[in-house]
């Protein structure tokens, strides 16, 4: 029987949504699913982590923050030794990516990141599918079945596992080394923007052209009562605070309606919004990759469309 070790994603002491999605990916492989909670107070996470399909929860109490990836590496290595899984599954996030490749090297295991599908083939090899080249290509990557593999799953691809399970809970004690990366200060984003729960998001990209245009766009979005998103270049230019960023290093969103203005659709952005229910793309460049992933498109100058929307708002 196969056994999965799922490494929970803990952010600010709370279980992040990708954890329940990673559990679903693990459950799809069959067998036992062991969910590991590595946190300062892992016991407090047990109720939320008692998901249907989880056979056992292993808690590891650690001294440092959830941002300490050297701590995560030490805990994960001890967990693999203890649980002896056939596969290790975690979310493809900044926290997990910070240690997954190091874990693979330390334990001599294959690592596949940003998977959108995972399964065992006829020879019982672990296979993961990756979506690459701006979503235009699927790549199938195999980990030899003789050894465990590590797979990081893209957020918002799998449905979350439901609460209400009754797994066995046990404690694992791990000696944690002091991290070589020392925290000086934590800077939280300003603005109180919560894109993850919005029904409608209007996002603006490089096509905006100027800070003034972004400000006008933001005013229009506010008037319509829709959440304001942006792609990476807008944040880098300092035209909007980082909390508005949609994408792999921003927020992964899944609104009922996502309207992208002047966003070409780099892999980084696409991975953060591709599971929105309806996707509308407005861009003057018909070759923008985001059109491949849209339900509705308009090949128009975004400024003209934004002007018209402002009149209707």
């Amino acid at each position: 029987m196969t056994r999965s070790l799922v490494l929970a994603e803990v952010v600010d002491g709370v279980l992040a949504p990708v954890t329940a999605q990673a559990v679903t990916a693990a459950v799809s492989l069959g067998g036992e699913v062991v969910l590991a909670l590595v946190a300062q107070d892992p016991q407090s996470l047990v109720p939320d982590a008692s998901l249907i399909g989880v056979t056992e929860i292993v808690t590891v109490a650690v001294p440092g923050s959830d941002r300490d990836h050297e701590q995560s590496l030490a805990a994960a290595a001890a967990l693999v030794a203890d649980v002896q899984p056939d596969q290790v599954i975690a979310g493809f996030t900044i926290r997990s990516s910070a240690f997954a490749a190091a874990l693979g090297h330390k334990l001599d295991l294959g690592v596949i990141t940003d998977a959108i599908a995972v399964y065992r083939d006829d020879s019982q090899n672990l296979v993961a599918t990756r979506s690459i080249y701006a979503g235009r290509v699927r790549a199938h990557v195999v980990i030899d079945g003789a050894r465990p593999g590590i797979v990081l799953v893209r957020p918002s691809i799998w449905e979350p596992a439901d609460p209400g399970g009754s797994p066995v809970v046990r404690v694992l004690t791990v000696e944690i080394p002091t991290s070589r990366v020392r925290t000086i200060e934590l800077v939280r984003p300003s603005g109180g923007v919560d894109l993850s729960s919005a029904d409608v998001i209007f996002s603006i990209g490089r096509g905006a052209g100027s800070q003034e245009n972004v400000a006008n766009f933001a005013a229009m979005a506010a008037k319509l009562g829709v959440a304001l998103g942006a792609s990476r270049p807008i944040i880098d230019a300092g035209w909007l605070p980082a909390a508005h960023q949609v994408g792999q290093t921003g927020s992964t969103v899944k609104p009922r309606l996502y309207v992208a203005f002047g966003i070409s659709g780099a892999l980084h952005h696409l991975a953060g919004m591709q599971n929105s229910r309806t996707i509308v793309v407005v861009n003057s460049d018909r070759n923008a990759p985001l059109f491949d992933n849209a339900d509705i498109g308009a090949i128009e100058d975004i400024h003209d469309v934004i002007e018209q929307l402002t009149l209707l708002a």
């Binding site: 290509v137 699927r138 199938h140 491949d292 100058d301």
Partner: peptide, 27 residues
């Protein structure tokens, strides 16, 4: 040692399962 193997690539299904409808008629 290499523990993973890229076995094949394929073009993604068009529009990742979405079919694009273009809005005509101007801004």
């Amino acid at each position: 040692p290499s523990r993973i193997t890229l076995t094949r690539m394929e073009a993604a299904p068009t529009g990742s399962g979405r079919s694009l409808e273009l809005i005509e008629g101007g801004p």
